[in-house]
Design a protein around this nucleic acid. Structure first.
Lengths: 237, 237
DNA sequence: GTACAATTCAAATACGCATTTGAAATGGTT
DNA sequence: AACCATTTCAAATGCGTATTTGAATTGTAC
């Protein structure tokens, strides 16, 4: 058999360097030249090991995705029978862990967001798969929190409200600026997770109440802006 | 004097077409050729009227920004003395109005998000200015809702929680898929605004309570995860 | 109707970068 | 040592597209 360790090492160096460059510059502004220079390889190496820049991009995404699921599983630290509140907390913490990972993983967030708003189209199918898995998890938790009778729309919108917070909390490559804005320090991920969890639990609960009281004693919610939260809620004094 | 109406018309057509193309393809994938073709002008026209592609990009952003502030002011429909709850509602509605505008304006959202996660760097200063104005508005509302004693960090994080929802509710050019995911129809902006407002008001209120009870009777919140919402809150049964 | 500025145009240029190519080097196998 | 697959390399090639250029056209003033 033939020793391939040398070649696989180069391949690995390129893959990891590509994570960094794609993460920092985005697909379009990343160049073969830069990736290979930093990885200590020749420009032709990308073509040799991955075929095309696009294939390398996909390889990077897959690489980072499995890394994310390994390092920050959404169920980390909670038993299956934990309360939905604790499950949500774990979900948020894992989500933020991925987003603020000090190593390679933070690049995944950048790549995913860039792909959402400035899509190359290269990751469409792959992203859909991973997305579906994540959605299943958070929706499961929300079903517990909201109960069975709640309409699908409330479910989806609560999901959006929670995930939106987790996604927007970290900006792209300009995170210096972001840290200034939101007063965030690396050590504060747990605090931030607590904030989002508390905020979201209260939000979800408000939606649950409203939905319940709406379906309970009336088929018509015809009044325009008369259905505000305060009516059936004593939490505002 | 010389008649410039003809020229200015061409300039305007290019500007509006550029909004569309930059919005749909992003800065990097937009080409002189496509913009000019759609605008019925020659490739050289961009250079003639705007100098460079980058200058055109900046012009587009400025154009759309003033349009946004004109069409969807954050204070629309509420008096200055309205309750902070109603002010927040108006803010969210205006925000979503901008994001879901069926015409040109929707492109602004795409451009801003792309600039966040795949920055060209061309709009940094300009975006900071507009951002600062928006932040002032929402922070003012939050100050009313949270009271004076609340720490700046809670303020910033609540801001993030709210704005995050508004930003993530609409994806990029792939909004077909998004609409499927979140079950959103154009007519539903008001419903969605109501959801986000309700969700956020409850979230903010939860943060306020926690912050108050924390500062009121202890300087040490040393326990790790013992400061969950349920302790001083009767809304979870 | 001549002159002159503003505008439009087609074709040429320039440049960056992904990709190719074919030769050189490496290292194990016989 | 001779052989062969694997891997590295420097230098071309080719393509897409922003930008330039200089000539043609339009419209206005005198």
């Amino acid at each position: 058999m033939i020793d391939r360790t040398r070649g696989q090492e180069t391949r690995q160096r390129i893959l990891e360097e590509a994570c960094k460059v794609f993460g920092e510059k985005g697909f379009r502004d990343a160049t073969h030249a830069e990736i290979c220079r930093e990885a200590g390889a020749n420009v032709a190496a990308i073509n040799y090991y991955f075929g095309t820049k696009e294939a390398l991009y996909r390889a990077v995404f897959e690489h980072l995705s499995v890394l994310a699921e390994t390092l920050y599983p959404f169920t980390q630290g909670v038993s299956e029978s934990a309360s939905p509140e604790d499950q949500l907390h774990a979900f948020v913490r894992a989500f933020l862990g991925r987003v603020f990972d000090p190593d390679q993983l933070k690049h995944l967030h950048r790549i995913r967001m860039a792909e959402m708003f400035d899509p190359t189209g290269l990751l469409d199918e792959v992203m859909d798969q991973h997305l579906a898995k994540d959605r299943g998890h958070i929706l499961g938790i929300l079903r517990q929190l909201l109960g069975t009778g709640v309409p699908e729309r409330d479910l989806s919108w609560c999901e959006m409200s929670i995930v939106g917070q987790c996604l927007m909390v970290a900006h792209g490559p300009r995170d210096d600026r972001h840290k200034d804005i939101f007063g965030f320090s690396e050590a504060g991920v747990d605090l931030l997770a607590e904030h989002i969890t508390d905020f979201s639990l209260a939000g979800v609960e408000a939606i649950r109440r409203k939905s319940n009281s709406a379906t309970a004693w009336a088929h018509h919610t015809s009044g325009a802006n008369t259905t505000r939260l305060e009516e059936d809620d004593e939490q505002f004094h």
